[in-house]
Design a protein around this nucleic acid. Structure first.
Lengths: 249, 249
DNA sequence: TACCAATTGTGTAAAAAATACATGACCACT
DNA sequence: AGTGGTCATGTATTTTTTACACAATTGGTA
């Protein structure tokens, strides 16, 4: 006889009969607070930044935390994250994607709170005027410290996720103005991946991918010869994108 | 004056003062049931399979669902997933990784239940004797239908996740016996990725990665010339693994 | 015991992709 | 007019990927 004694009483009905009332079943489940936390990344002065807010918990006095909120009864997780994003930055049409859920029972000093981490990418200049709340701050990702909750871990995880993702998908453009020069693009990659890239090969590669539209304009206000400006053309990307396949590890 | 009226009352303290009692704060948060669901994959007869259980809800009569359970007060999410895995397969030391959290308010007929999906990989033969519970069933991933909850979506997501992951990391070995032939390995890749691969190039690639140990034995009970058996050597892999970097999309 | 079916094991040539690298022109600033 | 910083561009070399064929081994079967 097999020992099923360790199987939770929630896993199966005791007697093998079908459960008629799912509401009753679910109401017997233990419940927990759930939040979403947004790692909102921006790129400025050749550095990757993350938008943080001063914690309002006394135990985390003078520490920073991600922007987050509890989820509401009727909203999906992504909706909640998007709401946080909009409320704080005023921006809509912004890249947002779920990264990971953190559920360590001790991660919140007020009791168990499970949080779903989202990663968002936006162009800092597009909304810089909206951040006059001086509790909000763009913080360099390289020099994080003194974070509330487990938010340092969360940001590091999101940062690693971004590093990987930006090599496989055209996400980087979300961090730049609509029109950008190839130097800006290269600096973005160099900053996020923490590598040095050869300029000629970098250009060759992006031109070969063939989704950059020359907008016929040039950089302004740069203290050197201005470079051409380009736009990311999503349709071209979608049409030509390679079927990603390569065993390689 | 900025309009912060839409910002949730949970987001910040009203008056700008620091919150002294985090327990009180958290106890004001709405709560939800949280479950973990495990997409447990196995490989048999050259097919990717997933371990399913018959739903015990009457609304899902004769439908299949993933193995899952509610999380307990004091356990971390991964602990809960691991518990489900052990209880059902009797196996320990098994690959397990979080994939995504699903929180659609309507995904459970009994009310809102948020679930964290985990993906697990194991060798079917290692534990086939433990599945005499006839409510449990290895189901071909290619022919899913009639799943309870949103579990079809969840499995499809996990399957895509696996497809990508198996190309970047040596996960496939978890689905094979400790000693395997290169044909088995190739069939595994071909089944999961749904491609045909050139045998010589496949072998060349894996030998070049240099983490397969020839165990000096041969296949048995095959109706053709038996191939050499190999073991995956994790230490060698760790030592030689390439720093993964390539912009490519 | 001879043959068949299935699979093992092995290498090379051609094509494609990644890398390394230098120069003259342009613009702003002084 | 000179300087500092950047733009724009192409080629040769190396590395990686791909395509592809044949002899040998085993079990099964007539």
């Amino acid at each position: 006889m097999e020992d099923f004694s360790t199987i939770s009483r929630f896993t199966r009905s005791e007697n093998g009969k079908l459960i008629k009332n799912p509401r009753k079943l679910v109401s017997s489940y233990p419940t927990f607070p759930i939040t979403v936390d947004c790692a909102i990344f921006g790129f400025d002065e050749n550095e990757l930044k993350v938008l943080l807010i001063r914690s309002d918990l006394e135990v985390f006095k003078d520490q920073w935390s991600l922007l987050g909120d509890v989820i509401k009864d009727t909203e999906d997780l992504e909706e909640a994250a998007y709401r946080v994003l909009q409320q704080r930055t005023g921006m809509t049409n912004v890249f947002l994607e779920q990264v990971k859920t953190f559920g360590n029972p001790a991660r919140h000093p007020g009791g168990r709170v499970v949080t779903v981490a989202y990663c968002s990418l936006l162009n800092i200049r597009d909304h810089e005027l909206k951040i006059h709340d001086n509790e909000l701050h763009w913080h360099s990702v390289k020099s994080l410290c003194n974070m509330a909750f487990d938010h340092q871990t969360v940001i590091e995880y999101c940062n690693e996720w971004l590093k990987k993702r930006i090599q496989e998908n055209p996400l980087g453009f979300n961090l730049l103005p609509e029109k950008f020069s190839l130097r800006e693009l290269q600096h973005l990659y160099e900053a996020i991946l923490d590598v040095q890239l050869d300029r000629r090969n970098f250009r060759k590669k992006f031109f070969a991918m063939d989704f950059l539209d020359d907008v016929g304009e040039f950089e302004e206000d740069v203290p050197h010869r201005p470079g051409k400006l380009y736009k990311f053309n999503y349709e071209k990307y979608e049409k030509n994108k390679r079927k990603w396949f390569a065993i390689d590890f």
